[in-house]
Amino acid sequence: MAFLAPSTASASLPSALSGAASERLPKTRLEACRLGIHFGDRSALEAVDLVFSGGEAVSILGPNGAGKSTLLKALSGMLLPTHGEIRLDGQPVRGCDRRVVYVPQRSAVDWTFPISVLDVALMGITGHRSRLRPFSATERGTARDALAAVGMDHLARVQIGQLSGGQQQRVFLARALLQEGGIYLLDEPFTGVDVPTQGLLVELFDRLKRRGRIIVYATHDLALAATSSDRVVLLNRRLVADGTPAAVLTPDHLRRAFGGQAVVPFSGMTA
């Protein structure tokens, strides 16, 4: 995968500063400081303190309505905090930043749009081109590499609406890879995808981690969180627990986050 190798990536994406910067500074840092999000008078998140640093994959767990999506949107800058702030490499940020790549749970796009899989992926290559020039052979090659990395290269010319849900999700993942950000925020990437796609996601997260990227994803799958993330954040509008899977996924913590119901089947697994 040429685009995942540091040298090729910086050669074909010269102005993807995020990519180059995180190569030199493996310790990219993303922080939420006393983060609070309110919708009208309803509070979705309260006083959340979190620090993410380069090279780790973190899963966000919590029941429906716990604020997992809200947290990811706030970290990405899509939602502005009501209280507190988001810091990127120590600097407060307000709004979206190119270094942060956000992949929503289900893209709300018009599936009848006359656009090919390759063109969707090419959207991930932003900035730095001349306005008049079409995409260069190198850029198209990089996009095809990204599609190959998610097993979608053979469908590059197909209209996006012709794909199955899982395939569409893979194409948006390829686009996210091409954005060459330092931080990847994914909302429920494992929901509604088949086993091969889950395996592919885990493998991709590993590669990104090795390049010093931060991966943060929301999930409902406790077993997957336990096996494929370095760290688990348990959330229920407030921070319930934060640490290694073994330290966080205890019956006591889960009961506090989920209430009684989710604990019984899972406590056997942790024991």
Binding site: A108, M123, T126
Partner: peptide, 9 residues
């Protein structure tokens, strides 16, 4: 095509 993506970049 994709307003969420546009906002996120």
């Amino acid at each position: 095509f994709d307003r969420t993506f546009a906002a996120s970049v």
